[in-house]
Computed example of a mutant assay.
Amino acid sequence: MLYFTEKGKGKAVVLLHGFLENSRMWKYFQDELSKRYRVIAIDLPGHGKSSTNSKDVNRMEYMAEKVNEVLEYLHLDEVVIIGHSMGGYVALAFADQFKYKVQGLGLFYSTTLPDDEAKKEQRLKAAEVVVKNPKEFFRLSIPNLFAQKEVPNLSEEIQQAVSWAEESSLTGISAALKGMRLRQDRTDVVRDLDKPVLIITGEFDNAIKNAELKKSIQDFQNVSLYELPTGHMGMLEAPKESLEIIQQWLQGVK
């Protein structure tokens, strides 16, 4: 079973980290949200303390099934599920496979849309590079996730993100890259969910095509969309602002 931490009582809120991260990225959020909710933060397959729970290709559907194993173990029949980046892809796969368990869905710097062909090719190359030279891969890729004009002022935050990446297995990282490139368009999952959906984006996020995402969900009545002046790493670039949005949204999830 996947590694997880649990804190607090009340409505169950499941937090899923992104690529090159683990559940530690949610510590501030988990500490604060657990004052009102039962918050479960999970290490996804191949990442953090779940590094051994990996296949050669970790598809989003497989990760969602492993998340469900944790919820079954905890006897949770209904949850609010929030995912950052890759964690959002897993949350969407979870909502697709276990719709009846979802009270609310949060996409935190994530998207419903699949990779285009160029991105798919990029992920394949990255899957090879990270195994051969992980330190160089982390050094080059992680700073690009932040708002570029703020990078000189974010050395501590960038190092924090690098430390998370170093806690995952290289085979798990490679498997996640291969899995992300195979994910399908799940815009219809959001449309058909009939539950509150939160989407937080970054104005300077180069990892997500925000304009295309906004266009795809513009007529969805169940979506609350917020944009912050950040890159892709809102939990480090704007933690208080991000948390406040999530807290306000959770109050409306029944």
Rank of each mutant, 00 (worst) to 15 (best):
L92F: 08
Y109Q: 05
S23Q: 06
K119S: 13
A165D: 06
V90W: 00
G8S: 11
E241Y: 03
A12I: 08
F137K: 08
K27Q: 10
K209C: 07
H232K: 07
L154A: 10
T111S: 15
D205Q: 10
L243R: 03
S54A: 12
E78M: 14
M86F: 09
V189T: 07
K209Y: 11
E32K: 08
K195F: 07
F137C: 15
N22K: 03
E150C: 08
K49W: 06
P114R: 02
P143E: 10
H75E: 14
E212D: 14
E156C: 06
V102K: 01
V14K: 04
L44G: 04
S141Y: 07
T52N: 12
P45Q: 03
F137W: 15
L71M: 15
E6S: 12
V129G: 01
G18A: 05
D77Y: 10
S141I: 14
I246D: 06
S174W: 05
F29T: 11
K7L: 12
V102G: 00
V39T: 02
P114D: 10
S34L: 11
W26K: 02
E69N: 10
E203K: 14
K209H: 14
V131I: 09
Y3H: 04
L44K: 00
A118K: 13
Q103A: 09
G104N: 00
H84R: 02
L92Y: 03
E121D: 14
I246Q: 04
T5L: 10
Q122Y: 15
P45S: 13
S155R: 06
L140F: 15
I208N: 02
K209G: 12
L236I: 07
Q122D: 15
S155P: 01
A238V: 07
T111Q: 04
N68H: 14
S216N: 12
A207T: 11
G46T: 09
V13F: 02
T230F: 03
V129N: 04
R38P: 01
T5Y: 00
V80N: 02
